[in-house]
Simulated scan of single mutants.
Amino acid sequence: MFANSSIVSSRQLGAHPRLDELVLRHLWQPFRKPVSAASQQAFATLAAAIAADPRPRVLDAGCGTGASSLQLARLHAGALVIGVDKSAARLDKGMRAAALPGAPENVRLLRCDLVDFWLLAAAAEWRFARQYLLYPNPWPKPEHVMRRWPAHPVLPALLHCGGTIELRSNWRPYADEWTRALSLAGQSWHIDCLVLQAESPLTPFEAKYQASGHALWRVRTD
């Protein structure tokens, strides 16, 4: 069934108690993760292909099959939407959909580790008009807090790439952690419970969560 998604279950009922400590550490200490050769090559190929493109750039972080990237390309028709995901199988579906007649032309799908991509984009001084983090894996176990973007060491690189940053999640603690991380980084933000009666879901997950009766949370930087 389509509307059969379970509510996120976790022992953690609010923001993680170590969140402030982790975010402040990441903001002050450089993230020295080595970037893979495959990520460097993928980023270099994309950078060369869009070097002369004057359009504002929109990032769809963790785009999966690219369905969200195509939706964003329609929503931001004057921008270049870049969808990044590490799964070749998921992106292959997106490539086929992007090649269909009537698909928007202002979209690029890139296979790359997302952490590597943010590190490379920040080092290259890329700036995005918008960044979308649409329903990232919530990693709801408390011991997995550093796998979530609010507490991940790549956070400074993500923020360095700028723009209006929008996170959507069906787990309220994730949204709360994101708002706290933004505040600690000096960013202003607002949060609301997303109601999709007047707009189409941006991702298949969003459509499924909505049909399953989940509350959907949206956090946007100003």
Rank of each mutant, 00 (worst) to 15 (best):
R11P: 04
R18T: 02
K86Q: 08
W28D: 14
L24H: 08
G62H: 00
M146E: 13
I191M: 04
R18A: 11
F43D: 03
S10A: 06
S6N: 14
K33W: 12
A77M: 02
P56L: 02
A3S: 14
R57D: 00
A121N: 14
W28H: 15
W118R: 11
C161L: 06
H214N: 05
D222C: 10
R220I: 00
V195F: 08
P153V: 11
D85I: 03
L27S: 08
L59R: 02
A185T: 07
K33T: 09
P101G: 09
R130N: 11
H152I: 05
A73R: 03
G66S: 06
Q12Y: 08
R55W: 00
R180D: 00
W28G: 15
I165T: 10
H144A: 13
P136T: 05
A61N: 04
Q29R: 15
A185Q: 06
F117D: 08
D92A: 15
V195Y: 13
P104H: 11
P30G: 15
A52R: 15
H214T: 01
A67H: 13
M1S: 10
G78H: 12
L133G: 07
I50K: 05
P54I: 11
A15M: 01
S87E: 03
G66E: 04
A97V: 06
P104M: 04
V84C: 14
E206N: 03
R218Q: 10
K86E: 10
Y132C: 04
R18V: 00
I7W: 03
G163M: 06
A151L: 05
R96P: 01
D176I: 07
S87H: 08
N170D: 12
S6P: 15
L75W: 02
M95Y: 13
L120N: 05
K141E: 14
V81I: 07
D176A: 12
A211W: 04
L110R: 13
V195T: 15
